[in-house]
Simulated scan of single mutants.
Amino acid sequence: MPPNDALAPHAFARPAAGFSARRVGAMVLRYWYLLRGSWPRILELAYWPTMQMVLWGYINQFMASSSAWVAQGAGVLVSAVLLWDVLFRGQLGVSISFLEEMWSRNLGHLFVSPLRPGEWLVSMMAMSLIRTVLGVVPAALLAIPFFGYSVFDLGLPLGLFFANLILLGWSLALVIIALILRYGMGAEGLAWIVVFMLAPVSAVYYPVSVLPGWLQQVAWILPSSHVFEGMRAVLFGGAMRWDHLAWAVGLNVVYMAVAVGIFLYAFRQARVRGALLQTGE
């Protein structure tokens, strides 16, 4: 048998000389088939421009008629940005912990151990909480010298807002994980785009009343809308809206129960199909 060195020149075919439009076309066709076969990737292409247009359109509409109202509430936009990041990082913290197992093809190894799905979920949520605190607290502290505003002045309501937003983030993450288990890694982009689908109807930077009537009905079934309306009530009126908090807690309980059920169903189906071993980067 010839030594390895003798095989080296023949290990890979040499590129043909010159530029070939056919080879370029073949590769473009390959990438097109990959894109066409993954609806989450197609959705992502149109998602960001559309979402930015809708979100900033409503912000512009609100600021044009209510800039003086915003000026009366010190730090309202800073508080909104920081609390929105709690929702985003809460969701992403769970999703990334899951994706790291998928990228390393370690999911099958985890579940030949005594680890139970419920224990795994709790560990990902704990890691999400750590990631969120590490990400948001430094930004909140920097807002004090930069803008002369401390989100911690919200007091007890801040903790209640934080808890409700991170719970909603976890619910979204469980649904995203279920979709990835069902559709494979082509759906991993959902981890970055799903939460922003809620931004226009969560009334982060403007009241729910700015939205069209039919969209207001959608906003009121989201815990995030109640949280941000409650935040503005504290900043502008100095009073906690306990009705908004009650709605946020009740909706979160329902959404978390539904999300856990969807996740467990998708996990069982993935185990039956052998997807825990086959799905990877």
Score class of each variant (00 low, 15 high):
L121P: 01
R105I: 09
L121G: 06
V122H: 06
A64G: 15
S66Q: 13
A173D: 01
M125N: 01
A74P: 11
A64Q: 12
R182H: 13
F111T: 00
G148M: 05
W103V: 14
G155C: 02
V175A: 07
V137I: 09
I180V: 14
V76C: 14
V86K: 01
S150N: 06
I180T: 13
L83P: 08
W84S: 04
E100A: 11
M125A: 04
A71S: 12
A71F: 09
V133H: 01
L92F: 10
V112K: 08
I144L: 06
E119W: 13
L167V: 12
E100Y: 11
M102I: 11
A143K: 05
A68C: 14
A71R: 09
T132I: 02
F111N: 04
V70P: 05
V136G: 02
L83Q: 08
G108L: 05
L156N: 10
Y149F: 14
L82P: 02
L107C: 12
L110M: 12
L121C: 08
L141W: 03
L92E: 11
V175M: 07
V136H: 07
G73E: 14
I180F: 06
G148P: 09
Y149W: 11
P145L: 00
S66A: 14
L142N: 12
L165S: 05
N106C: 13
L83W: 08
Q72G: 12
A140H: 03
G90C: 03
G159Y: 09
V133Q: 03
V151P: 00
T132H: 01
V76M: 12
L141V: 07
L179G: 05
M125S: 00
S67Y: 11
N164V: 03
S65R: 15
G108R: 00
W69M: 15
L134N: 10
L179T: 07
L141C: 04
N164W: 03
F161R: 00
I130V: 12
R116Q: 14
G155S: 07
L174K: 02
V112A: 06
W103Y: 14
L77I: 13
G73L: 11
L160H: 02
L129V: 10
D85I: 15
P145G: 03
